[in-house]
């Protein structure tokens, strides 16, 4: 069961392709992240899926409905845009009321949900304050509260934590997880790698309008395959002790012979074997660490460029 299906989507702006034959599917109940640097086409894709703009060619459906049926799709989605989309001359509560009414939430239900949503995002005391007095983080929280008020089937978040401090970001992440636990499918864009790593079930890496890779965070890491293991010893050791394991691909020993960098296929499995082998040889180990590749490394390997988004 898929909540989002995108097939060979193309969107051009003055001849250049903002989206170049993009295809993917998102399972129901997943958090899906579109990760890419500035100008990759994330907002363009979000705008197509939320019926704001039409693609030049290709097919897209959301919650089982073609994006051509705009009103039907809109009834089933929630959107938090990259830029705030609040009425700054209304209060927080009035914004939520307006939203609930637009989405046809009944009066009785409305009161209850608004109350709960305000409490959830911690804006209860601010409910009667005009939104023009809100900080960026408060506005973002209020926009998340709006999502809780109308509970969509599919939620679109365009850079939900852009420019927020770390505490607020964590909170937003928690809300997103909470929404997933309610069975809501979440499509988000981000150019924060750790956001995609922390939050998402599936990641698609987009660059210059093309999806360059798609998969689970772990899957993408595993595909890249190479861990780096760092070992620090109290005394130098012979190379054979380390090189005999099949996981080891490359060994670099520091000038003092005591700091060793090992490129290995499965660093986490190599470490216990290596440690027992070293202790059998009577070599004392001072410190061990392993670095598994992140999405950053995946991006660099795929595009040959550093991810400049962060």
């Amino acid at each position: 069961m898929y909540s989002i299906v995108v097939d060979e989507l193309v969107k051009r702006y003055n001849g250049t392709k903002a989206l170049d034959c993009v295809s993917f599917k998102v399972r129901k109940g997943c958090i899906f992240a579109l990760l890419g640097p500035n100008g990759a086409g994330k907002t363009t894709l979000t705008n197509i899926l939320t019926t704001l703009i039409e693609p030049d060619s290709g097919y897209a459906e959301v919650a089982g409905i073609s994006v051509k049926e705009k009103i039907k799709v809109r009834e089933r989605i929630g959107v938090v845009f990259q830029e705030p989309a609040l009425d700054t001359r209304l209060t927080a509560r009035e914004n939520l009321e307006f939203h609930a009414m637009l989405y046809g939430v009944s009066k009785k239900e409305r009161e209850k949900r608004i109350e709960k949503a305000l409490e959830l995002v911690g804006l209860k005391e601010w409910q009667d304050v005009l939104v023009e007095k809100f900080s960026g983080g408060m506005k973002r929280k209020l926009e998340m509260a709006r999502v809780f008020v109308h509970t969509p089937e599919v939620l679109f978040l365009d850079e939900p934590t852009l420019g927020l401090d770390i505490q607020t970001r964590r909170k937003i992440w928690n809300y997103i997880k909470m929404l997933r636990s309610k069975g809501i499918t979440i499509f988000m864009t981000t150019h924060y790698i750790e956001e995609a790593e922390n939050l998402c079930d599936m990641v698609a890496i987009i660059d210059r309008g093309k999806i360059v890779k798609i998969g689970t965070v772990d899957g993408l890491r595993r595909e890249l395959g190479e861990d780096t293991v760092y070992i620090e010893l109290f005394e130098p050791c012979r190379l054979e002790v380390i090189e005999k394991f099949e996981e080891v691909m490359e060994v670099n020993i520091g000038e003092d012979g005591k700091t060793i960098q090992i490129i290995a296929s499965k660093g986490d499995e190599l470490i216990p074997k290596l440690l027992s082998s070293l202790s059998r040889s009577g070599i004392k180990v001072k410190a061990v660490s392993v670095k598994t590749p992140g999405l950053e490394d995946v991006f660099m390997k795929l595009t040959g460029r550093k991810f400049d988004g962060v």
Binding site: T50, T51, L52, I71, R74, E75, I77, V79, F81, E83, P84, A85, L86, D87, T88, H99, L102, Y103, G104
Partner: peptide, 12 residues
Amino acid sequence: FGFLKEIAVAPV
């Protein structure tokens, strides 16, 4: 102020 978008994605 971005509010036009809120209306643009609403089912109206």
